[in-house]
Structures are given as C-alpha cells and as structure tokens.
Design a binder for these strands. Structure first.
Length: 703
DNA sequence: CTCAACGTCA
C-alpha cells in the first residue's frame, strides 16, 4: 500500500515559496521513523513518544535525520498545505475558530482529502521542523505550526491534539523558544502531556525556577511528572551551579513518593547533583544504590564524586572511589586524575599531589591546563614559588599554554601570604611570556592592592584595565568599593557606588552587602534601610551575609533589639542562621561587657544545633573579661581544653586583657608563657598586652 | 573543573 505523493492541487501550482518552507520540504522527505509507524499511523503515537524520550536522554541529534532502517521511502509534499495556511494566516486571524467544517471552501476540503493518509509521525515531524526552524521569520513559522495543528483538528486528520500541542511546546523548548512555548501553552488547559513538555522546555532552557513551579503545580493538579523531567531539572540545576542538597532531597522525596521509575540516567544525575551540591555523603549513598542494582555509573559521575570528596577534605574516600573506578576496568583519564589532585592540593598534601602527577605520567595520561594550575596552586600555597615557576616552564615545554588564570592563582597566593609587592613581578613575567592579563587577573590584582591599603595602586590598576579595553564587571566594582570602605574612605566608596550605577552596572547582592556595611559603620541607619528596600525592589533577596552584616552593625552600635529583629527576620525568611551570625551577636554583647546576654545568645545558638567554635568562645572570654568576671573567663579556657577546641593567640590575648581589667597584672606573664608553651606564636597585639601589663606592674610597685 | 568580590574574635 505504498502511497504516492498527494497530487498537487492544480490551483496552487506556482506559489512563491518562502525559504523556511522550501527547506522543510526537503528535510521532511525521509522522516518516517519506522515501518510500523508508516503502516499503522495511529498506533505509532505512543511509540513515537517513547522514541522521543530516548532521543532526549541520549543526545540532541536532529529529529529529522533520515532513518536508514526505514523500509519505505515515502514522499509527502507539504508545500501546498503550508502555502495555503501561511497565506490564510496572513490574511485573517488564523485560529479564530475551528468549529465549522461545513462552511469549508472546496479548495480546503480537497487539500484535506489529499493528506488523509499521512501517518501521524509525519505530522509530528512537520511540526518539529516548523518550530525549530531558526530563520529570522521564526515567529511566523511558529504561527504556521500552530495553524497546522488547528487545521488538522478542523479536519480530524490526526489523532490526539493534546499530543500535537505538546510536540509544539517541546520543539519550541528545544529551540530556545521558551517564551513562545509559554504563549502556546496558554491556549490550552494544561494536561499531563503539555505539562511535561513545558517543564522539559523550561529545564532545557535553564529556567529551573519555572520548571520547579510547574512541577509543583502539576503535582497539585494530581498529575505525575515523568522521570525525564526530573533528569532535566537536576541537570539544569547542576549546570547552573544553583543546586543545593536540600532541594535535591526534596525532589528525590517526590520521586520516591510518586514511585517514579528511576533509570540509570536519573541516578547518574542525582549522584552528580549531590556531588555538585557539596554533599558527597548523599552522592555516595546513591552511588551505592546504583551499584546495588547492577548499574555502572558513568565516568563523569565518578569524577564528580571524587572531586566533591576532595573539596571536603575527605581524601581517603576520594582515593577509594578512584581505585574502585580503576577496579571496574575504567581507565582514569585526565579529569579523574585532576579530581583526585584537587583533593590533595586542597588538603595541602604536596607529596601526594606530586605522586598523582607522576602516576599520570607513568600511565601515559597527559596533564592539561587544570592539572598544571592545581600543581602551581599547591606549590604557591606552600610558598615554594620556585617550584611553581618550574611547573610554568614545564607547561610551556608540554605545549600547554599557561593562561591568565594560572597567573592569577599565583597572584592570589602571593596576596594570601602577604607578599603583595610581588604583583608587579607576576605581571611582568606574564607579559614577557606573551600572556595578556584578563579581567579576572586584574580583579585579583585590584583586590591584592586593596587588601594592603594601596588604594592608589588599586585605582591605577583599574585605569590600566580600562585603557587596555578590558571591561570591568560587578566583581571589579565590588572589590574597588569594598577596599575603600576597609580603608575607612566611606565617602569615596559611596562615590564609586554611584559611578558604578551611572555606568550601567546594576549592583548585585554583594554590592548591597558592602554598602550596607559601610552605611552601618557610619551609623547611617536610614540609608541602610533604603538600601535594603532598593535591593528588594530590584528583585534581590537579602542573603545570609546581608543578615549577618546587619546583626553585626546593629550589634556593634549597641542596637541589640534591631540586631535580634534581623535574626528573627532571617529565620522567618527560611534561612538557617550560621555560626558566623551568632558569633557577631555574641561579640556585640561581649564588647559591652554584657556577659549574661552573651551567654544567652550562646544558648540560643546551641538550641539551633550549632556548636560554638573557637571564635564564639573567644568572644565569650571577652564578654566575661569586659564584665570583670576573670574567673569565668579562665573557666572558658578550661572548657576549650576539655572540648577539643585549641586556644589560639586571640584566646590568650583576651585572657590577658581580662586580667588587666581587674588589675591582676602579676598573673599576665604566666598566661603569656602558657601561650608560647602551647605553640602559639605571639603577634603584635599579644606582645602589646604583655607590655602594658608589665607597665602597670611597675606603676603599682612604685606607688 | 568559571577560578576573582561581601559577614564574626583580642
């Protein structure tokens, strides 16, 4: 029952073809997917959905590529239909109503008859091509696609219009036409098919917020989302680095609750998701789950797990996964070695880092840019600049171009070691190697100068950056503004903030945090409030840093009720208070000698499940000290020793201060002594404290 | 493997 192409209606012989239509004509000629689809058009619908899913999972190859397995080559020419529809489309409202087949003109009727035998899969392909055509006239081809659907509906030519709509939405989503997909979806009430298509479209276009919203609306409507959508959403969240563990746990909860099938891909996505969300424990849990049902995770999945373990300092486990990977016959490649290397570099085990690289060499795996920069990081952090430089040379020898990134890492580690003067040398060396510094490098350089109070150098660097045609970004502005604040030049900082906005950069949350801190230090509370309003009207929500800054600045000015209010506000906004935030509060009480309130804040902190760390305890010592309760201050020291919190130079300095506060000068030297015995290196403040105690002692002896 | 900028102690 081979079908001939439908006869071209004689009345449309030579209509001018617009280019997208011509292309469609060509691409549709061989688009029958299977023989079954051709012989049983209606039955093929579910089949073609499944095939779609498979394709989505494993790649993005063009839907309309020829299927070599196709037994029959069928040719349908859709040109007359498309011409007819695009003409009537432009003449009148295309989809005004589709209800009156009786009033059809005979031309249209004849046209419909000629397409009566076209299998559904071919209509689907036609719609997909119309939606994905990327020509400038894309909106008209989308209208055309919609017109095709309406037309099919009018003539009862294709079963399941819901499916056709979802195909349209799906195809639009794949062609980055999310907006059009939404417009289209509004023409129909959402059904599971269209929901799925729309969620799929959002996830593909990295609009995970909309995707998640739709997902929960879908659940509210009593429909189940399919596992492809979960995969796509998790992938999208992972891609954009917006993934966090609790969100992923919630998603998995839904999957479990709805008993949604979890295939290998979804498991891989979940594992990678948890790994990227810095939750290697859960990643490992799911890894074990995959292995228990006989699935072998992909190499990339294992690499992500190794990397996240390394980042958390769980090197032993990272190494175990790495070894396991080798055990299952997978040969680790550069990325896997890099992931492992990252762990050792992070932990500062230079020896192991070197071992990894030499094992790479032994196994014939060539190091790449990342390998070298990690190694350079490791040497630079250890202060071994010469070794870092040798690695640079080695990079060049192995034809791996050292880029600006590597140099900015070197610059950053000089900065962290306090050797900011080296910046010029790094810049010189880099330029002599023919590497042009990029924005990132300049940002680090500005930050370095800013951190060491060289504001002029910082501004010079900024100007130089501009003169080299490198556009600053928000980070550049934030760095500049903040270093002026840190230097106490709040006026200049505010000017820069204004300048930033004048030049068309919109402040981000970090910018607002910096400025809120600045106004807070100046006790300009109205300005603080107006900044908070501005940021929210811009759609930026205060984050944990914002709230901590507020608690800090209000607390330090003695506005405790405002500080507490911020803390409560943050909790009601659904953010979990951090230790840093409680420390800021405890410190605020401590500085005013309000030891009872400090203790109370510590209690609330505990009740929130946070363990007081060294900083909190040091503040508590300060609270007792300032409140002339030196005995309790030393009790805290005792507590620290018993609870595995190692006292530091600040601890002992604060204790000495509390002794001085109650005139027990003679006890100070012993504390200083103990500090040295416990392995703390005295700094300027510690020595100054001892000196002033000695001075007071002399005075009391004299008098 | 996107790196760089913002919050807590003497």
């Amino acid at each position: 029952m081979l079908l001939l192409p439908p006869p071209l209606p004689a009345r449309f012989p030579s209509i001018q073809l617009s280019s997208p239509i011509t292309r469609l004509h060509v691409s549709l000629q061989t688009s029958i997917h299977t023989a079954a689809a051709a012989t049983a058009a209606e039955a093929s619908i579910s089949l073609s959905i499944d095939k779609d899913k498979d394709r989505n999972r494993y790649g993005d190859e063009d839907d309309d590529q020829s299927d070599v397995l196709s037994l029959h080559k069928r040719r349908y020419d859709f040109t007359p239909l498309l011409n007819y529809l695009s003409r009537s489309n432009s003449e009148s409202d295309s989809d005004s109503d589709s209800a009156s087949p009786t009033s059809l003109d005979p031309i249209e009727f004849q046209l419909a008859e000629s397409y009566r035998a076209v299998p559904a899969s071919l209509w689907h392909s036609l719609l997909k091509s119309l939606c994905s055509s990327s020509s400038s006239s894309s909106s008209s081809s989308i209208n055309l696609a919609y017109a095709v659907v309406s037309w099919l509906q009018r003539h009862n030519l294709c079963f399941s219009y819901e499916l056709l709509y979802s195909i349209l939405i799906h195809a639009l989503g794949r062609s980055e036409k999310l907006y059009e997909a939404f417009l289209l979806s509004q023409r129909q009430t959402l059904t599971p098919l269209t929901y799925n298509a729309l969620i799929n479209a959002c996830a593909r276009n990295n609009d995970h917020e909309k995707a998640l919203n739709l997902m929960s609306r879908m659940r509210q409507d009593g429909y189940q989302s399919d596992f492809v959508n979960y995969s796509l959403i998790i992938q999208s969240l992972t891609r954009s680095n917006k993934i966090d563990s609790s969100l992923l746990q919630k998603l998995y909860g839904e999957i479990e609750c709805d008993k949604i099938e979890v295939d290998g891909q979804l498991l891989n996505d979940i594992i990678v998701g948890f790994a990227k969300a810095n939750d290697p424990s859960r990643a490992i849990k799911f890894l074990a789950m995959a292995q228990a049902i006989g699935l072998n995770p992909k190499t990339a999945t294992l690499v992500a797990v190794i990397y996240s373990l390394g980042c958390c300092g769980r090197i032993a486990e990272a190494e175990a996964v790495f070894e396991e990977m080798k055990g299952t016959g997978l040969k680790p490649r550069t990325r896997a070695y890099n992931a492992l290397l990252k762990g050792y570099v992070k932990a500062g085990s230079l020896k192991d880092a070197e071992l990894v690289v030499s094992e790479m060499e032994r196994s014939g795996v060539s190091p790449d840019e990342h390998t070298y920069s990690l190694l350079i990081d490791a040497y630079a952090n250890a202060g071994r600049w010469e070794s870092a430089r040798i690695v640079l040379k080695e990079m060049e020898a192995n034809n791996v171009q050292p880029n600006s990134f590597v140099y900015s890492r070197i610059l950053a580690s000089y900065r962290n070691k306090g050797e900011w003067q080296r910046s010029f040398q790094v810049l010189r060396e880099m330029k002599s190697n023919g590497i042009q510094p990029d924005r990132h490098f300049y940002n680090v350089m500005i930050d370095t100068f800013g951190k060491y109070d060289c504001l002029d150098h910082a501004m010079d660097t900024f100007d130089r950056m501009l003169s080299e045609g490198i556009k600053p970004d928000t980070v550049t502005w934030n760095t500049l503004i903040d270093c002026h604040c840190k230097a106490g030049r709040h006026g200049r900082a505010e000017e820069l903030f204004e300048e930033m906005k004048e030049r068309g950069y919109s402040p981000c949350t970090t910018t607002y945090n910096i400025m809120i801190n600045s106004f807070g230090e100046q006790e300009r509370w109205d300005n603080v409030k107006s900044l908070l309003g501005k940021m929210q009207s811009q759609g930026l929500l205060p984050n944990i840093v914002t709230y901590t800054t507020l608690v800090d600045i209000y607390g330090k000015s003695g506005r405790f009720s405002d500080a507490i209010e911020c803390l409560e506000l943050m909790k009601s906004a659904g953010l979990k208070p951090s230790s840093t935030m409680y420390n800021a509060l405890i410190n605020a009480y401590a500085q005013r000698g309000l030891s009872e309130q400090a203790i109370n804040a510590l209690r609330i902190m505990r009740a929130d499940g946070l363990k007081p760390n060294l900083l909190a305890l040091n503040s508590l010592i300060n609270a007792f000290g300032e409140d002339r309760r030196d005995v309790e201050a030393f009790a805290v020291l005792q507590y620290m020793k018993e609870n595995d919190v190692k006292p530091d130079v600040v601890t002992y300095t604060t204790l000495m201060k509390s002794l001085i506060r109650v005139d027990k000068f003679h006890k100070v030297p012993a504390v200083y002594e103990e500090m040295i015995l416990s392995g703390c290196t005295p700094d300027r403040k510690a020595r100054a404290m001892l000196r002033s105690a000695l001075r007071y002692m002399k005075q009391t002896v004299k008098s």
